[in-house]
Structure formats: C-alpha cells, structure tokens
Design a protein around this nucleic acid. Structure first.
Lengths: 199, 199
DNA sequence: CGGCTTTTTGTGCGAGCGGTCAAAAAGTCC
DNA sequence: GGACTTTTTGACCGCTCGCACAAAAAGCCG
C-alpha cells in the first residue's frame, strides 16, 4: 500500500511537540486554533488534515506528554535508592517554577491541567487521565514494594496507599505551584513526606 | 445617604450562591452568561447591574466559596483532637464524589479549579488563590502546633511543613477525584498520611 | 401627585471562535 | 509526460460569546 500524492511539508512529530508546549502553557480553552496556526507556521487546512479537530489534537498532545513523563519516571526509579528518586520526582514541578518567569513556559502538570479543564465533560480525556493515574501509582507502588523489601521504606502502609498519597502530592504540588510558590516551604513539605516514608 | 429608586427584585446573596454552584460545577469558561441568566431566572441587564462583568461575578463566587470553607475548617479544628478532624477535612472531597453521579453537582475544590483555569492569566484570581492557600496553611499549622505541644502529632517536621504537605494533599486529592476515584484507595492514602503525622 | 432614581427587560452588536471547502500545487507511478 | 493522489492555501461560514443600551417599570420623597 505505497502512499503517493504531495508529500507533507512539515514534520508531524515536531508540530505535535510545539503544540504540546502551547497547550501546556495556555490550556485547551485559551489556546485558539489561530494561535496554533501562528505558532506552528502552517495553515488551518494542513492542521485539520493532519490531526483532525482541535480536541483530538489536544488529546494527542496529552498522550505525548504522558508517554514522555512515564519514560522519565521509569528511568528515575529503575535503579538506585527509591526515596531520593521520589524526592526528585516530587520536586520537579516545584523547580520548574523557577523558569516560569519566562513567557509561555508551561505551568504545572499537563495531566492535572487536563483533569481540571476537560475531564468533567469529556470521556476520552477522562480515560487518558485515569490511565495516567493508574500507571503512575502502579509504577511507584512497584518501586516502593522493592524499597520496602530492601528496608529503605517503612512498612507502616501498603505500597499502593503510599503511591496513591504520592500521586495526590505531586498533583497538588503541581497545581498549587501555579499560584506562585514559596519554594523553600514546598521543599520542606516534600522532605517531611519523604522522611515519613523512611523505614 | 438613603437609597431610593426601584428596589431590586431578587435576593443578591441568593443569586450569588446559585451562581457559585453553577460556576463550581462547570468552571468559568464553560459557564456562559446565558447559562447564568437561565439558572438565576433574571435578565442580563440585572446581572450586569448587580455584579459587574462575568469575571467579577466569578471572583465574587470564589470569595464566597473560600469564606464558607474557611469557616468550616476553623470550626472543625477548634476543638477536640486534631488528627481526626484533619482526616475529615482531607476526606471531604473524596466523599463528595459519591454525590457526583447527579448532574450538575460541583466537582473538586473550587480554589483548585480556579488555580487551574484562571491563575496563569488573571492576577486578581491569583491573589485570591494565594491568599486562600496562605490562610489554609496558617490555620492548619496553628492546629498542628497545638497538637505537637499536646503530644498528638509528631515533631519530626515543623507544623508549617506539615500544613503545606496537607495543602498539597487536599488539592491533589480534590483534583484527582474528578477523574473518578477508587474511594477505598484514596482513604487508605489519607490514612497513611494521618498515621505518619501521629506522634 | 409629580419628579427623581434605580432596576428591569429585551434587543442588538462586534468580535472571535472552531471548522469547511474548492482550487492550486507538488509529488508518485505507469 | 500525463493521470492520479495528497497536501497546501486562504477565503469563508455559521455560531456563540460577553457586553452595551434604550425604553419601560417601580418604588421613594417632598
């Protein structure tokens, strides 16, 4: 099934990445199709032809966001002690805040943003978000299970409960940080949680 | 300065409360002025006359939301042991989920929703949100300080750090719960946190 | 009762939105 | 080189949005 016809003049993956940054920093509703057209330097028709409508485009960007995040999460947890890695994972959105003085720099976690903006009314978005939550807790719970067995993490709670608590904390930290964060206070809170997990 | 003129035909506070429920359940962007007009059973002109534009109307609703929340928070923490009260405070959004099968029932914490939807672009919203965060952590930290002194809560971390962690957790829980929550898993996570705070 | 002030009522408006479409352009394959 | 297929281009459409406004209505006060 060899494809013929005029070849696409832009890189689809690169366009999706750019769109991801735009959607991430402005959200779904505040990003107009015109904004995308301007930022991606392509015409409306090309965009619709390549990605379908705005909603599908956004959801594709969210999927790309999560895939990237999951890869980094796995890499951070796969080797070495778990607690320092988790501290890094939790702290990441807090320190991303430092760059946020620049215009257009993404704010918060895109999964969290999507949860707030689309989930109540969009079943497909809900599925993506719920799946991301499930994968996060599963990956983290697996790491915590190993760390409990190795004596690094307390067995006062199940790995699943601890992982769920960590999900709440990342999402909460990432959300609260949008309103301007006292970085040292946030770090102290994260440290308090990490300490509480220590065996 | 006695006021004269035609008296207002509706109760302003009651209208604000109704608007709060609508804004809470649908968010700012998804609630149109027409929706408000329909739900409040008044005409556009009356609405603009009484509350200014849509943004001011929304911000007034958020302020009302926070004032109500703060009152309940203070009441819950002012007497008795702190940890059970905190467990209640954290659990509240999780159990509110049970009612969410009904249409139009508010979802999540309105401060959190506002953070996600308006804060990046609206300085006035950011102020309201930041102020709410500050008051939450102050109130909770005060309660934790008392509880640390009374031997109920561990002194492994400062009351401020613990309060900040609780803020992250409430906000995260409230956000994540929008995507459909495994209630028992959420309760286990909250219990794990409460246990970790115990002296 | 008549002037004054405020609210009510309903229409109307300009702007911006997401999305469509037909013609032109640019490749591939026989 | 000519038929075919796909993408590009840019104009265009209908809709909904937040908001303004003018006339009518309703109460207070001298």
């Amino acid at each position: 099934m060899a494809r013929t016809g005029r070849p696409r003049a832009f890189d689809k993956d690169e366009a999706l990445e750019r769109a991801l940054l735009l959607f991430w920093s402005r959200g779904y509703g505040e990003t107009s199709v015109q904004d995308l057209v301007d930022a991606l330097a392509l015409e409306r028709g090309s965009l619709y032809g390549a990605f379908g409508d705005k909603r599908q485009f956004y959801l594709a960007a969210v999927r790309l966001y999560w895939d990237t995040y999951e890869r980094r999460l796995l890499a951070a947890l796969e080797a070495g002690p778990v607690l320092p890695a988790l501290r890094e994972v939790l702290t990441h959105p807090a320190r991303a805040q430092e760059y946020a003085s620049d215009v257009g720099v993404p704010q918060g976690c895109m999964i969290g943003n999507t949860t707030a903006e689309l989930v109540p009314q969009d079943d497909e978005a809900r599925e993506i978000v719920a799946r991301s939550h499930a994968r996060f807790t599963r990956i983290v719970a697996d790491a915590l299970r190993r760390a409990q067995a190795g004596g690094e993490v307390t067995q006062a709670a199940t790995p699943e409960a601890q992982a769920q608590l960590l999900l709440f904390t990342v999402q909460g930290l990432s959300l609260v940080s949008r309103a301007g964060l006292d970085t040292s206070a946030a770090l102290a809170a994260v440290d308090a949680l990490i300490d509480a997990l220590r065996a």
